[in-house]
Design a protein around this nucleic acid. Structure first.
Lengths: 137, 137
DNA sequence: TGTATATACCACCCCTGGGTAGTATTTTTT
DNA sequence: AAAAAATACTACCCAGGGGTGGTATATACA
């Protein structure tokens, strides 16, 4: 019942960067502030830049800054950027054919949570996360 | 947003066996009916018997049958039997210190879903699953 | 123009969950 | 007692996510 670790990192980094959306953050600075492994972080940032969520600024004094409007980046966008096959619609027991008409045994107990979570991921934006971020976490 | 594959298998097998809770099901029969890899299935069943969810009947004509009352086995019991470190309480961003007092940026958006899912897993029993099982899945 | 400070790219390592193989052991049937 | 039909145990394999290392490339500033 969780996102992949890489998804967690992506959300943490972007939420941190959202504090000042115009600033250019170097990978080293993010590494020191957030405590993520430097190498893994740079790999992640490269991925996020390929997916157009952040803009790269190369060379000395370079780094990354957020490319799009904060309100236009949702949790789902972030998760999908780093975890392509994350499926919010998936049957909890893994049945391809599971549906309202032909439900698996867990269907009626899981379906509403799935829908709610999907909706949350689609509607909560980076701007929302920025607002609810505390100093400590 | 899913259980581990082994958890899926465990739920599928137990729900199938719940159809006739007194019957002894051989691993081979379950394998043929459910289509799970035979070897993996026996490994899983051994695990479930160690966790006292099923009873083993050794020797020829042997197999497994459900040990406890169907209403006393919850989804959470099943998941925990095969996946010890499945944590229904975990912070979605992986912060140990995340709490209502010191929330991570996702906390207010995730907390209620987490609570609901946890409650569902604790309250839905194998008897409930048996009743909602369709012929096909 | 050289050097320092950035990211970019490629290959690799490690651990874990999922899955396989061989063989031993138990019990029923004949 | 032997054969058949089942589980039990131990070890191993494989793929993928998470994480590291080396080095190339880009840019700013002295």
């Amino acid at each position: 019942m969780r996102f992949s670790k890489t998804s967690e990192y992506a959300i943490r980094v972007l939420t941190f960067m959202a504090y000042d959306e115009t600033k250019v953050y170097s990978a080293n600075f993010l590494h020191e502030e957030l405590g993520l492994p430097y190498r893994y972080l740079t790999k992640l940032m490269t991925e996020l830049s390929k997916k157009k969520l952040v803009q790269r600024v190369r060379g000395r004094e370079g780094g990354f800054c957020i490319k799009k409007k904060l309100s236009q980046i949702t949790v789902k966008d972030i998760v999908h950027a780093v975890d392509e096959n994350m499926d919010f619609k998936r049957c909890i027991l893994g049945f391809d054919k599971c549906s309202d008409d032909s439900p698996c045994s867990m269907h009626k107990y899981w379906e509403k949570h799935k829908k709610q979570i999907n909706k949350m991921a689609e509607s909560v934006s980076l701007d929302d996360l920025r607002k609810s971020k505390t100093v400590k976490l």
